[in-house]
């Protein structure tokens, strides 16, 4: 186990700079999630930590030791790839024990460690199969097992759930969370899915265009977003961002209201809107409405409601939950 520190890390490909002065401290045993839209640099940052790509500028410290020039092996990190990257010609047991066999560990020791990891991940019955004979979820567990066997200081997981179907994704998400609780090893997890980030992370690092937008616990990011981008990225459905006259009323360039902080009211509404779509999810109802001078807004209502498309409704916002942003996207206090 180890802590990590990234000091002014930059990465360039030729003249193109893709990561700009990344500064981040990750505590020992912490579960950190890098999240951001496609192309924001989150996977690149993970590859720099792994040692798969060279750091252009800055320092990477693992366990207090400058590790820029160390090989992936010397860093003693394990990585789970989006595509699983299992060796197709090897059995599950061989895949999981590959790193130990490279170290020329005794066969009995390798077998024991593989068996332990297999038991943890319920892979005992699959040890003699080849990756081609496994389902997506099983392959993912083998990939995680291959990482566990090495007992690394840091786990890196690069969008490990993106190839799984929705049900399996939720299940595996829980399993990874439980695994982290059990192993207490530092984990860095990359995803573009903010729900994964919110549900799994101790802290989330939000990246945008190669820069860190904000670092914080899921609730910090949700309640006090540091930028308009974070406000719009965290939360599902997305925060309503309103500009123009409606924002000027609150002395802001943009105001943000989360869908759950808007309500449909009959008495003295702040706005009037025309319902354009209703999504009924059972435990809540999401209403999309078009408000004159404001634009499209999303309202999330608890429970089941019988609103209809084309219906005119009055809308009111919880004023204490409105986020105000300046023209540069920074929040106004």
């Amino acid at each position: 186990m180890a802590d990590l520190e990234l000091r002014n890390i930059s990465k360039s490909y030729g003249a193109t700079k893709v990561l700009h002065d990344i500064n981040l401290k990750i505590d020992d045993g912490e579960f950190i999630v890098f999240v951001g839209p496609s192309g924001c640099g989150k996977s690149t940052l993970l590859r720099l930590i792994a040692g798969l790509d060279e750091i252009t500028d800055g320092d990477l410290l693992i366990g207090g030791e400058r590790s820029n020039k160390l090989s992936p092996k010397q860093r003693n990190i394990a990585m789970v790839f989006q595509s699983y990257a299992l060796y197709p010609q090897m059995t599950v047991a061989e895949n999981m024990g590959f790193s130990l066999s490279l170290e020329r560990r005794p066969k009995a020791e390798i077998r024991q460690k593989v068996d332990e990891a297999a038991a943890t991940l319920k892979l005992e019955a699959l040890l003699d199969r080849k990756p081609g004979q496994l389902s997506g979820g099983q392959r993912q567990r083998v990939a995680i097992g291959r990482a566990i066997v090495r007992n690394p200081r840091v786990f890196l997981l690069d969008e490990p759930l993106s190839n799984l179907d929705a049900a399996l994704r939720t299940e595996t998400r829980v399993e990874i969370g439980e695994l982290h609780q059990r192993l207490k090893t530092t984990m860095i997890y990359v995803t573009h899915d903010q729900v994964e980030a919110m549900t799994m992370a101790d802290r989330i690092v939000i990246l945008n265009a190669g820069r860190i937008e904000q670092v914080g616990t899921p609730m910090e990011l949700y309640n006090t977003p540091a930028t308009e981008f974070v406000a719009s990225f965290i939360g599902s459905p997305k925060m309503n961002l309103i500009t123009g006259k409606a924002a000027q009323e609150y002395d802001a360039a943009t105001i943000g209201i989360r869908p759950e902080h808007l309500d449909i009211v009959t008495e003295s509404p702040h706005w009037q809107g025309l319902i354009t779509l209703v999504e009924r999810l059972g435990h809540n109802t999401i209403v999309y409405a078009q408000v004159p001078d404001v634009g499209p807004v999303t309202i999330s209502l608890e429970g089941q409601h019988e609103y209809q498309v084309g219906q005119n409704v009055g809308l009111d916002a919880d004023l204490s939950k409105i986020h105000r942003f300046a023209r540069d996207g920074r929040p106004l206090v």
Binding site: G51, P72, K73, F81, Y87, F98, L102, E103
Partner: peptide, 27 residues
């Protein structure tokens, strides 16, 4: 051959010759 296979072997601690012999050539 998926690039990730080569990278996974590097992470596992294989040298270039070990990756060539044990990962790339068998496939």
């Amino acid at each position: 051959i998926p690039r990730a296979l080569h990278e996974a072997a590097r992470i596992d601690g294989a040298t270039e010759f070990q990756i060539y012999r044990r990962v790339v050539m068998p496939v």
